[in-house]
Every structure is written in C-alpha cells, then in structure tokens.
Design a protein around this nucleic acid. Structure first.
Lengths: 243, 243
DNA sequence: CGAGCGGTTGAGGCATGTCAAGAGTTGTGG
DNA sequence: CCACAACTCTTGACATGCCTCAACCGCTCG
C-alpha cells in the first residue's frame, strides 16, 4: 500500500470514525492494484470477495441481461463500490469495468464483515453509508419512472452545472455514448435530444455545456430534492449516482 | 400494543437477534394504529419520524413528481418500510397510502437510531437489512432499464407463479391498474400486453393467471438471479419489492 | 495514412402513450 | 332493495416518443 493511500481512505465517512488499530488492520489486509483502461475487473454474478475503493481513474458499473447492457453508475475517486454485496456475501449485481487507467484498493470482504461486528463506530458508519446508497438508488428509480428521456437529460445537465459550482458552462465528464446508456436511451436519441434542448436554455458544443437561460431550463427540469438531491454526509459512493 | 403483536415483530430478521430488554424498550415506545383504506399516512418530503411495520393489510409506496405518480412498491405483513429515511433522519422519498384497512406499528425513529448504537446485534441486523434493500432496488432498476415492458410483465407473472409455489394458476394480488404503474406502463398498455402474452404460454382471465406453457414463458423471460432473485434471509422488506 | 471509434443526421418503423367510449363491478344513499 | 355514481378494465383509433438501420464526418491512434 502506498504511503499516501491510507489518509485518503481514512477520511471517508465510512472509515472516519473507526478505531485506528482496526482501520490499520483492514488496510494491512488490503491490496493496492492498478488496472489498465477497459478492463473488466468484476463480472456480475461473481462472488463478492472484495470491497473496492477507487483511488485514481474511474470505473463504470454496468448491468447486463440477455446480451444487452446498460450503465448503472460511474465511480470516481475517492469512493467505494459494491459494499452491499460484500456485506451480504452475495454475488455482485453489476459488472465493473475501468474507463481509464485506474488504481483500486481491495479490502477483503471477510475482514469487512468481521470488523463491523467488532467496531461499533464502523457498524454505524456502514449503516449510514448503506442507507445513503439505498436512498440514492430509489431517487434514481423515481427519475427513470417519472421523467421522460428529455426531462432526464435536462435534469442531468442542470444538476451537473450545480455540482460544477453553478457555472454557466462546464465540460461533460463522460462520453455521450455512456451518458445515453446511463440515462436509459440510445446515443442517437441523446444526440437529437441535446440539440432540441437549445430551445430550453441549454446549448451543447462537443463536450462543452453552456447554459443560456437558466430559468427556462429550471422550468423544464422542475428540480426536486426527493429526486435530484444528495443526502448530506453520504459518500455519494457505492450508489455511484456520481455519473 | 396488542399482546400478539410483539412475537410477530420479534421474529423478523431485523429484530430477531437483539437483546430482549432492548426489544421491549423499542416496543414500549411504539404505537399500534389502524388506518382506513385509501389513507395517505406519509407524504413524500415529510420528516421521517417513525419506522413503519405493517401488521395487517397492505400499503402502497408511490413516488410523485410534477403531478405524475408511480407505484414503487407494495408492502405486506409482516414487514417494515422506510428504514433508510429513519436512519438518516431525512425526508421520506415516497408517499405511503393504505390499500385497505391496515394495522401499523410505529417505532420512533429517534429510539431506533439510539438503539443500534447500543445493541451491536441490532446494528448488524440493520446492516443486513439495508444491504438487502439496496440490492433489491438495484435489481429493480436493472429490470426497468434492461427489459422492455412486455418482458417485465412476463417476468412478473412468472416470478409470482414461483412465489405461489410453482402453481400453474394463481390470482393477482394487486389491481392491474396498480401493477401497470409498478411495471412502468399505462393500464391500457398492460391490458393489451397481457392479451398478447397468450402466445407466450400464459393466459389471463380477470385476476386469474394461468400458465399454459411454462417452457415458452420461461424462454421469453430468461429469468436471472441477478434481477429476479431474492437475497436469502432478507425480509424482502423495506425494499418492498414485494409487489 | 488508414482503421476504428464516437458522434451526428436522416429515414422509417415499432412500441408505448393518449384520448375516447363502453362493459362490468363495487359501493353508497335514497 | 334499487338506482346511481364511481371506478376498473378493456378495446379501438390515433399520436408520438424512441429505437433501428444506414450513411457520413471528424478525431485518435497505431
């Protein structure tokens, strides 16, 4: 494990409050690995052997069925993913694939499970993390069922402008192809939708997003804390609604 | 609290392992209430004051946005719902509405939060419950994004035939109107889809479902543990993917 | 340089939603 | 006990959202 790795992990909400000796024990049992871009590091259905912590790079989580697949989330540093599978000692529900060269710390699931039985503060942190993850996915499910694709795209763009500090202009962090899959539509349809949104106060130039009329865009999106909000104190992690 | 209530709650995975005195304390602080049918007992956005445990009847959880709404889950006895909101002391993400006369035990969220800090076994149970809930919603999200409406309907019908003990014939537990909303489609579309599924080995007569060719139906559904499966040991609860 | 890939655009088709009407059922009040 | 209202479910006609297929552009990278 690199010397600079520990502190970054230690200050995550998930590990922040546990006893130092216990944290050290977990880290000692862990592995620090680097994966090349495009590598499938986890296949859905595999047994959950390790909690993954993204240190550098980014990871795509995809769901697969009947030869189809869709992006469920993108995880960025520093955050964890697939906590729930580790806890339940159950198969991963999603496939994980690096989007770029990515450094990951792997914490053995068995150590994790024994640890939250021994360290009450860690148990509470796990509870909070899981509750936050759960709520994020519920929000995501609401968005999918209550909004049409046009509204989802608009909501995504507005939300990320806010994340970018309310900037009137920012750059998309993911390929449009991937974004389309995440939003539950085809790349062609996303492309057309983006163009048509110019009449709703937002313009796209390549990967550049320019908000030309925030009020008009907001009127279309109708932002709602119960869909677009983030639980304070969550890693935003694991849920991966980071995309 | 009715004398027969305690044991039913006590044997839920969530409460099974905690210290008896602590369980009694939680129950003592709780309320036992009966609600008439069609009552909106929780409005989304309200502060999460109580963990709800359905003892009799059934409760619909719906998401709402911009005047639209859709059914996210139906909760049946004996199980809990809205655990995550209570834990995070955050607003409910869904509205809860009784489908019939329903008896509910209300556990104050504050007592819940202090309890899992004091009772390690309870903390572990909460962790397991939340992890199971989280996985259920992820499965649900995968189903929504990877399957079209026809496949979702077929999967639902096959799954519930299995839940009914592999019976070739069973009765729908919910109104078709509600089922349509749950599956993310309109009632009209569900009606047509059900009829068209006759060529795929399943026949519907009112609320009666008759599987005429299980192999053909299974071929369409392509059941997948990572979408249709249930985590063993979960209450199936809270997630409410019981619908 | 050329192959491969992401993105865009257009044409056309299927899936799904919308609107409207009517049958059957349930619940309620006179 | 009946009549009516309200509701679910179904069916048809129609509109539209979204996908599929295909072609093309531009960029990147071997």
């Amino acid at each position: 494990m690199r010397p600079d790795t520990d502190p970054q992990i230690r200050h995550l909400p998930l590990f922040r409050d546990m006893v130092q000796a216990n944290f050290t024990e977990l880290m000692t049992a862990s592995y620090d690995q680097i994966f090349p871009p495009g590598l499938e590091m986890i296949r859905q259905g595999d047994p959950a052997d390790f909690l993954h912590i993204v240190m550098e790079g980014s990871v795509e989580l995809v769901g697969q069925w009947a030869g189809r697949e869709c992006t469920m989330a993108v995880v960025r540093p520093v955050s964890t993913f697939i906590l729930a599978a580790c806890i339940r000692d159950a198969p991963y529900l999603m496939t994980a694939r690096t989007l770029e060269r990515t450094r990951i710390v792997l914490v053995p699931a068995s150590d994790l499970r024994s640890m939250f039985r021994r360290d009450p503060e860690f148990a509470v942190a796990v509870i909070n993390e899981l509750a936050a993850c759960y709520r994020s996915v519920v929000r995501s499910a609401k968005s999918m069922k209550l909004r049409n694709s046009r509204e989802r795209v608009a909501a995504y763009l507005l939300r990320h402008s806010i994340i970018a500090g309310g900037a009137a202009s920012y750059t998309l962090a993911v390929e449009k192809r991937l974004l389309a899959s995440y939003l539950g539509m085809t790349p062609e349809n996303l492309s057309r939708t983006l163009k048509s949104l110019e009449s709703n106060g937002i313009k796209i130039d390549g990967a550049r997003v320019i908000i030309t009329d925030r009020a008009k865009l907001t009127a279309l999106v109708k932002p709602d804390k119960l869909i677009d909000g983030l639980d304070v104190g969550s890693t935003a992690t694991g849920t991966g609604l980071i995309t």
